[in-house]
Design a protein around this nucleic acid. Structure first.
Lengths: 337, 337
DNA sequence: CCTGGTTTCTACAACGTTGTAGGCAACGTT
DNA sequence: AACGTTGCCTACAACGTTGTAGAAACCAGG
């Protein structure tokens, strides 16, 4: 059923290697030989066996993208861009769901690299730098929060500055009791910590001081957690006039909870998110957010990985920053149209 | 740097094959030999070369999942379940974005199967049965709308019945001018056609008749298209008191457009969707929908594929139906709490 | 017609793994 | 003591591809 170089070679009356040369576009093949071989390839519907090619060449042409969860819109959108950017360089992307636990991530970081993969783009939640020291040399690019000066390339956005900017935006609207949703005390919460830092420093700059009671934790960042955290805030008696949610899904949950409580957004409470997911353009009200340039992030990551794979594997780790934009929408408007 | 069976064998003082036997859990290895080998494996941090193993065994342990777009929540959620179901059987999933065009899908159906993949789970939009006849034998399972009795296994849900059920639900609420959003005339629109059929037959059963003016097309099914279609409907002068959107993202867009027009949901217009995506639980208002059992779909697909891979490849194609549930939420409630 | 260089093609080995066949002990049975 | 059986291990070949080295055919210039 499945044909090999040998079958094609026999049909075309040439050696196996000549067929291989034709398949790989080697220049020095006589036109008529090439034509005969191509005819045979077409007739037999020959397709190269990638396992064999990979074994021989030591390359697979596959890179992996590991994200915590695919059905978090931010990661789905990111995945889309990574797949596109990788395709431009002739790579196939194998997408891996880690679930976000430290143990699972460690498995991915060390195990997935089973010679199947030329490189790994990794968006870790829980991983620490220590988990990365023993890698067996598979090139890797980390996304998102930097694993404290770890041994791998990074693409980051400046979380602290971005969080400060969106908090300032709320301050600029005249809001005075600005809550935050999404803080995490666990070691996994690198993003949470950075965003909290930005929030805090903006508040202090504005002279408001930092009020622990206005900060609601959220162990994971799904819609349901945002809704629950919002309800907790409200029932705890604090009366925020704005909320900065550490990601958009939390914010969508918070919007929902506010709606259920009968509070109006933005009139009673302004809401801001983080991630710039597509949902936020269509929610009621539309969601103010920090939108990282996901396409840029994906392209930078793929390029860093390409350099690492083709170039010097022992070069010092590089860290690139991707831009982001504050996108003000209805959820923080002074008045609605 | 990277070690092979041979290195482990030398260190443990055994043959290469014995190491292979230990790695593969072969029973007849003396405990002390096994221990020595395992020590060597650990010391050298040996990992099998999957390309070589695959070449030898003719299996790769990878299956592909091809979906039109990853950032459509339905597909992202589905992907999550497929990855989970496949992991239970020891398979890795390579996720592929086709973009939904016929040509790209044809490439995936024929090309991706380059010996890299043991099987393919494919959720096509544009593909026709003709595109599938020339496959070179890679087992394949189709998801979603059946490709008219094509040559491959299918997992489907009964779109017509589901669409009829949700339309009936709207009828049961006393709605009389029930619009539809998402019709498609292109050959890609298999889902659209089936859902339209169900909608139409429910209307006719109810004695309302089918009014072309109430049916808005949507070439693709993103939020923006739902919003645009809704605006078109409203500005065309028809005054629906309910809308059945052929998927949830369309419905979320429609909700948004209705909100912008100042119409209340569900009081003025009831809105229903299709797909049961997570977003619909948190939108304002929450979205009534048909929720296919995605976990079941994924499991059935993986099992069908497993049978095809391990079993008789020439058996007649099977078609399995997955259940769905009507989930009534605020967007079609008589009155809101 | 020979020489030296280029073009075109081939034979062979190797990538790292596992299936097959078989060898050698150790054991229990006649 | 001779025998078959079992347990444990090894040598070898093969999976399909490509890099290397080199042979054969061709060409141009003397």
């Amino acid at each position: 059923m499945r044909h090999r170089l040998k079958d094609v070679a026999e049909r075309a009356g040439v050696s196996v290697k000549t067929v291989s040369n034709v398949v790989n576009g080697y220049a020095h093949v006589r036109p008529d030989t090439r034509a005969r071989v191509e005819e045979a390839i077409a007739a037999l519907n020959y397709r190269p066996n990638l396992s064999a090619r990979n074994l021989r060449k030591g390359r697979t042409g596959i890179i992996a993208l590991a994200v915590p969860e695919l059905d978090i819109p931010y990661f789905a959108e990111l995945a889309r861009h990574v797949v596109t950017a990788a395709a431009d360089l002739g790579w196939t992307v194998l997408i891996d769901q880690t679930g976000g636990g430290r143990e699972q991530e460690r498995v991915v970081a060390s195990g997935i690299t089973d010679h199947l993969i030329d490189g790994l783009i990794f968006s870790p939640l829980a991983l620490t730098a220590d988990d990365l020291i023993n890698l067996d040399g598979t090139p890797m690019v980390l996304l998102g929060e930097r694993v404290a000066h770890g041994p791998a390339d990074h693409v980051v956005i400046d979380n602290v500055a971005a969080a400060r900017e969106i908090t300032n935006h709320l301050v600029g609207l005249g809001r005075r009791r600005i809550a935050a949703i999404g803080s995490q005390r666990t070691p996994e919460g690198a993003s949470a910590r950075l965003r909290l830092d930005g929030y805090r420093s903006a508040l202090e700059e504005a002279g408001f001081g930092y009020d622990e009671a206005l900060v609601a934790p959220a162990p994971v960042w799904h819609r349901a957690d945002g809704a629950a955290a919002m309800r907790n805030l409200l029932s705890s008696g604090v009366r925020p006039d704005a909320v900065f949610c550490f990601n958009d899904t939390l914010a969508l949950g918070a919007l929902r909870a506010l709606h259920e409580t009968g509070l109006r957004v933005p009139e009673d409470v302004a809401v801001a998110g983080f991630d710039g997911i597509e949902d936020g353009r269509f929610s009621v009200p539309t969601l103010t957010t920090i939108a990282p340039d996901k396409e840029r992030i994906a392209r930078l990551a793929v390029e860093l990985l390409a350099n690492r794979i083709d170039g010097d594997r022992n070069a010092a780790p590089r860290e690139l920053a991707a831009p982001y934009r504050l996108e003000p929408r209805e959820s923080t408007r002074g008045r609605q149209p």
